Amino acid sequence: MSKKRCSIAACASLIISLAISSPAAADPKPPDPRYEVIASWKDNTGAVVYLRRGSWNGKNGWGFEKVTRYHNLNIAAVRLTTQFPESRNHISGHKYHFTTPVHHVRCTGWWIFRDCQIVETVDVTIGVDFRDVGNGSFGVVTAFCTGDPRCPDWVKGAANSR
């Protein structure tokens, strides 16, 4: 009888030690901060577009960090381009490009004597990946202006004035 008690005690202590040290009992891994949703809205078709934090290391990246730090755009420019695109093109899989022209307008005069002219136009393109990543779609991958990866400052101003 004492042998059975001893083996039962040994088995019980082994099970307890395994349960305590098992990876399942460890603290869960914190969520990856790159996938934090900065903003979301509906595009021109009603699909939800997510702008996630992303990353930018000076050479490669995606999301909000790349859009703002490398391409010099803001949330308003990205949102408006996906909501009011001139074109929405399927690239591959779940990826789409939204493109719309943005005009740089200069005005002179005032009141009824005001005269405004378009002095420059650039196309803004937003790349969105709609594949599911568990808490919504992957979202905005990139955004850029035609001709130069870094958009002029006035593009952000045009988007903010709408």
Results as ranks from 00 to 15, higher is better:
96 Y>N: 08
71 H>R: 09
21 S>K: 04
68 T>M: 03
146 T>W: 13
49 V>W: 05
112 I>P: 13
15 I>Q: 00
27 D>E: 13
25 A>N: 15
119 V>F: 06
90 H>N: 11
89 N>G: 05
116 C>V: 00
72 N>V: 09
37 V>R: 05
86 E>M: 12
58 G>C: 06
6 C>M: 15
55 S>Q: 06
90 H>F: 07
61 G>D: 01
113 F>R: 04
162 R>A: 09
113 F>G: 07
21 S>W: 00
23 P>T: 12
118 I>S: 05
138 F>H: 11
47 A>F: 11
92 S>T: 12
31 P>H: 04
13 S>F: 15
24 A>S: 05
76 A>V: 13
160 N>V: 06
3 K>V: 08
102 V>A: 05
40 S>T: 09
75 I>N: 07
98 F>Y: 13
154 W>V: 04
44 N>A: 08
162 R>M: 10
149 P>M: 07
14 L>R: 04
114 R>S: 01
111 W>P: 10
85 P>V: 06
59 K>I: 03
37 V>C: 03
128 V>K: 00
9 A>Q: 11
49 V>Q: 06
65 E>L: 10
116 C>W: 09
81 T>E: 03
4 K>I: 15
141 V>Q: 08
46 G>M: 02
138 F>A: 13
34 R>T: 11
143 A>C: 05
35 Y>R: 00
9 A>S: 07
148 D>E: 10
121 T>G: 09
90 H>C: 11
153 D>R: 03
22 S>Y: 00
122 V>Y: 10
33 P>H: 03
13 S>V: 15
152 P>H: 13
45 T>E: 11
76 A>C: 12
31 P>W: 00
26 A>K: 12
7 S>W: 15
120 E>F: 03
88 R>M: 08
42 K>Q: 14
74 N>Y: 00
21 S>V: 14
134 G>I: 04
77 A>C: 02
66 K>F: 10
44 N>S: 09
112 I>M: 14
42 K>F: 06
87 S>G: 08
104 H>L: 02
147 G>C: 02
37 V>S: 03
67 V>P: 00
111 W>C: 14
109 G>K: 07
146 T>H: 10
95 K>D: 12
89 N>L: 11
94 H>A: 15
53 R>E: 08
58 G>S: 02
121 T>N: 10
105 V>I: 11
154 W>S: 01
80 L>W: 14
28 P>K: 14
137 S>P: 06
87 S>T: 15
64 F>V: 05
68 T>D: 07
123 D>K: 12
2 S>H: 14
144 F>Y: 13
64 F>K: 05
16 I>L: 13
12 A>K: 04
1 M>P: 15
63 G>S: 02
133 V>A: 02
22 S>I: 01
95 K>C: 11
125 T>K: 01
150 R>A: 03
49 V>N: 02
117 Q>T: 09
72 N>E: 09
3 K>T: 08
2 S>Y: 12
93 G>E: 05
60 N>K: 07
1 M>D: 12
110 W>D: 09
